[in-house]
Amino acid sequence: MTGRNTINHHPPEYQNRCCGRSPTPRLRPKVSHSPGDLRSDVSAGSGDPRRTGVSQSQYQKFYWMVSKDLLSECRSLRVWPAMLLLGVVVAMMFAMQTDLPPQQLRQIVGGLLWLTIFFAGTLALDRSFAAEREDGCWEGLLSYPVSPTCVYLAKLTVNVVALAALECVLIPLFAILTDLPLLAHPGPIITVALLGNLGIAAVGTLLSAVASTGKQSSYLLPLLVLPMVIPLVLGAAEATRLAVEHDFGPSWWRWVELLGAFAIVFVTAGIALFEFAVEE
């Protein structure tokens, strides 16, 4: 073990570069260290951008948290394959049970699509905190100087991305299975999908944090989330149905507005309540 020797061998310039934030020379044997000075430096806000309100570094931390989660998922492939597979299987089951003429199918395709997205997406929502709780990583994350809002928004973003990936598979699949023009108007469908994702992820991320503290996380989450997202599923299903029928009149806009309102209300609520959900 060479560690004991190495610590005294850091070149002085490294010590300043490495932790430029702190005036404390790192691991220097001589006691020139004065935590009191450090404290006053940190709290006095000596032109340090990190101390000035919503600093840039919170955005950077948000970015690093999102990329950490996506990288972990890309490497482990623990959740997304299962989620996509469940989505495909549920879609096939629905298609099997609703082998109807296109005119009737048109009425229900939106509802089926969004229920499939919801049930498969629940897997991703559930894992977003369960994965962190392994090896105490969650506590580590909370012990960093990061605001809970930042953590919430990062988790929310990862879940929105997961749901978007799910939709990239499910919407074409539904178009193929039902032979309906789901992709004829990509713009409106993408708008509905994005707003829907944001709404489901906003409620789901918050409630996943709530459920993950209990012992019965995975089976409880759909039960908690589904009643909350009923207006959203209703709105998204109706908007999808109208889009399939090429009807982009006021009633389509009304449903889109509902989706938007839902997303705004629950992202705000999530930011406000997340702190309570994660405290010990």
Partner: peptide, 27 residues
């Protein structure tokens, strides 16, 4: 903890009620 979790669900539920009423009325 139980109180906190219950409270969060209750508050989100309350926020949800107007949206539910709106959505179902249009339905």
């Amino acid at each position: 903890r139980r109180a906190r979790m219950g409270a969060i669900v209750a508050i989100i539920g309350m926020l949800d009620v107007p949206l539910v009423i709106m959505a179902t009325r249009w339905f």
